[in-house]
Structure formats: structure tokens, C-alpha cells
Amino acid sequence: MANARRLAKRAGVGAVASVAVLGLAATIPTSAAEELQDVFAAGDESSTGEAAAAGEWREAFAAKGMDVMYTSLAAADAENVWALGSQYPDDSDTPRTFVQRYDGAEWTQEEVPADWTLEPEVAGASGPDNVWVVGPTADGVGAIRYDGTDWTSHEMDAGLTPNDLDVIAEDEAWLLAEDAAGETRAVRFDGEIWRDWTSPPAGTSQAIDGIDGETVVAVGRNDASQPSAALYDGTEWTDLEVPEVELPSEIASATFNDVLVRAGDDIWAVGYVHDLNDDDINDYWPLTAHYDGQSWDVTVDEEPSGELVAVEDDGAGGVWIQEESWDPTFVHHDAAGEVTRDTPDIENYDLNVRDLALIPGTEALVSAGSAYDEGDPDVPTGYGVVLASGL
């Protein structure tokens, strides 16, 4: 998810930060334009044919009739992309691990042992021969790994609840999780086994991303109901001191859902401010933040239009941000500061998107999830779906 640039401004950690609250001030890096323009682009609903134009999202693969729902993604290069999920053959209540691979031309199902029950929760890849997937199994929690030839099973602490996974290299992968007591846990793969590692501060258990073993960032929400972030520098975790967000009420909270680390002085985090309105209905204000190595710029939208669930590099100096999991909108901030939006649509279906990934070496992105019958039918049906932009 991140490139190989290293931490450039380590001395800036903990510096005074600025914040723009409940306003749409421009807070993207200085390399981007100071003002954002909303440009709405029509989506490409087709699932076949040539790649959609840049910025347009389409259905790239539909697992119709396969009894599978996708829950995570891993992308290594243009010829190695995996959509991962669970299959329930013959109306069975026991899931079977399902792996679908894109080789640059077509999607094919990969063979894995028929008795694997791992339900892919998080996944990542540092190359076509180093793919990790972690999720619950019939026995607790487990991991599977692809080495370029075979998929193998690996043991994990059965008491963990995985939240996010970042695969940096063959000897560097991080799992961010919570234990049975709800405490934040960091587990690191060192090239041989997964080991308990120094955990980030409490409240940073939501998402993790890094570029090497000395530049890893975890984010979430702290005990003060404020967004939080911490940096691991190869030795210890340091609080990145996100400025407090003005909350609309005493019961409101602000959270980082996801983080993208492109360098120590180029970190994006996205999430939401949550509150209940007068009708006791949930309201979510989009929350966007950028860290330049010295301070954070944080923006909360003026209107409660939803939560931001994912942020990813666009391969060209900009970022993609996903709004909402259900019927998502993908927002593109290019390197010049122009903002475009696209809401993919599959006629008669509601979309639930679970993961977002850049295909390294390209400007193409993929997202995996499921399409369900529109509305609330008595007997709902659906299928796994892969969405793509530029693929």
C-alpha cells in the first residue's frame, strides 16, 4: 500500500499541529492545489470490455453463481491480484476459503485445501511471491501465505480479532488486532514466525500502514473520543499528537478508519465524526487529515454526509478516498489538487465494499465486496464483486 520512501522528517514528530474544524478548508499537501473542485463523473456499469477511463469505477468481475462473497484484497502487480472471500458450497453452514486471482487477462479460482475454513478478514502483498491473509477459522484465528507457488497455513494467536494487515517485505509484515480483553495488539512477522511485538498506544487499533520497519503508523480513536495516530520508528511507538477535533456534543466521537503512509512526511488518515441527531439517528461527518512530518492538517466537512472508510495511493502522486462501505463513492484527489468523484452502480443491486488496493506499478485500483438485491427482499441473494478503476 505504500512506496519505498523513508522517513524524512523524524524530528517533526509531536510538533504543534493546525486544525480546520467543521469547514472545507483545503488540507492536502503543499504539492497539491489549495482549492478543491468537485467534478462528478459517470460510472461504467459494464463488467466486461476495455478498461474504464481514469476516475471511472466499473464492475471488473462478478462471481455470480459461485456462492462466494469477497471480504479482502491483495495486489502485487498487474498480473497478480487476489480477491479473497468465503464460499458456502451445497448450502453448507461451514465456510470454505475462496481465492480468486487476476493474471492480467482473466480471473480464475485458485486451488486451496478443501478443509480450509479461514474467512479472509485482512490481506496484503509485497510481491507476487509474498501474500498474507488473516482471518477467523473454525478453530479461532489463522493465516495463510502464498509464496509464488503454493498456499500454506500458519498458526496465529486464536484469541486475536484482526483489524488490519500491512505486508511490507518478505521479512516484514504487521497485524494490528485486539485481544479478548479489547486491548490493542501488534503482531509482527520477521521472516520466520509471527511474534508479539511492542503494541501501539491504546486507541490506535483501527488501521496500520508502513513503508519499512522504521516507518509504521497505526491509527484509531483514543479514550478522549478523539482521532489518534502513533509512529513506530524501529524501536518504539511515539504519539503523533493529532489535534483535537471540536465535537458537536458530549456523546460525539471522532475516529480514524484508515491510514496511508507514503513517507514520514506524507501520511494521510481518514475517518469520521459521529453523533446522534435529535431523532437518535446516527450522523457522520467526513474527516480527512494529512501529516507533513511536522504537523497535522485536519478537516471535518460541514455537513454529515457519511464516513470515510479507506484511503489509498493512486500511483501518480494523488490519493483515492472511499466514502461509505454501502453503495460507496470513490473520491480522487490528484497530484494537482483536482477532486473527482465516482459512484459505481450495478442496476438492481446494493454494493457493500470491504477493501481497497492500488495495483503496484500502475495507476489502477481494485475494490472487493458483494452485491446484494436492492431493497429488503424476504429472501436476499447476492454475489461477490470486484470493482476497478483503470484496470
Results as ranks from 00 to 15, higher is better:
Glu214Trp: 05
Trp82Thr: 06
Pro200Val: 03
Ala173Thr: 12
Ala11Leu: 11
Gly375Cys: 04
His332Asp: 09
Gln87Trp: 04
Asp297Glu: 08
Val261Phe: 05
Thr94Glu: 14
Ser295Arg: 15
Leu240Trp: 07
Ala202Pro: 05
Glu170Ile: 03
Ala207Val: 04
Glu155Asn: 12
Lys9Pro: 02
Asp313Val: 08
Val242Phe: 03
Trp116His: 09
Tyr232Phe: 15
Asp297Gln: 15
Arg341Met: 13
Thr108His: 10
Ile28Met: 11
Phe40Pro: 01
Gly104Lys: 06
Ala229Pro: 10
Ala78Gln: 12
Tyr88Gln: 09
Ile211Gly: 15
Arg6Asp: 13
Ser126Gly: 02
Ile281Pro: 00
Gly220His: 05
Val331Ala: 07
Glu347Asn: 11
Gly12His: 11
Ile321Cys: 00
Ser305Ala: 12
Glu236Tyr: 00
Val379Tyr: 13
Ala158Glu: 10
Glu110His: 08
Ser31Tyr: 15
Val259His: 01
Glu34Ser: 15
Phe61Met: 09
Gln37Leu: 13
Asp327Ser: 13
Ala269Phe: 13
Asn282Gly: 09
Val353Met: 15
Ala20Leu: 08
Gly49Phe: 08
Ala78Asn: 07
Thr149Asn: 15
Glu338Arg: 14
Leu160Thr: 03
Ala17Val: 02
Ala33Arg: 13
Ala125Cys: 08
Ser47Phe: 08
Thr340Phe: 03
Leu24Thr: 11
Gly140Ile: 04
Glu363Gly: 11
Tyr146Ile: 09
Val311Gln: 08
Asp313Pro: 03
Ala78Phe: 02
Asp233Arg: 07
Thr340Glu: 13
Val242His: 02
Asp314Cys: 07
His333Gly: 06
Glu111Phe: 08
Gly384Asn: 04
Asp301Asn: 09
Phe330Ala: 07
Thr340Ile: 07
Glu45Leu: 08
His274Lys: 09
Ala335Gln: 13
Thr184Cys: 01
Glu250Trp: 04
Ala289Cys: 00
Pro113Tyr: 08
Gly124Met: 00
Trp107Lys: 02
Arg354Ser: 11
Val19Gly: 12
Glu59Ala: 14
Asp278Arg: 13
Trp285Leu: 08
Leu247Ile: 11
Asp373Ala: 10
Val366Pro: 04
Asn257Leu: 05
Val273Phe: 12
Leu247Phe: 12
Ala364Gly: 10
Pro377His: 08
Met156Asn: 03
Phe98Glu: 08
Gln322Ile: 01
Ala74Ser: 12
Val16Leu: 14
Asp297His: 14
Ile281His: 06
Gly85Ile: 02
Ala218Trp: 03
Val217Cys: 10
Asp280Leu: 14
Glu110Ile: 00
Leu308Arg: 10
Thr152Lys: 05
Asp350Gly: 10
Val16Pro: 01
Gly85Thr: 04
Glu192Phe: 02
Pro243Thr: 10
Asp280His: 09
Asp157Cys: 00
Ser389His: 07
Glu56Asp: 04
Ala42Thr: 14
Gln294Pro: 00
Asp93Arg: 11
Ser249Asp: 15
Leu175His: 01
Thr27Tyr: 04
Ile251Thr: 14
Ala2Arg: 04
Pro227Val: 05
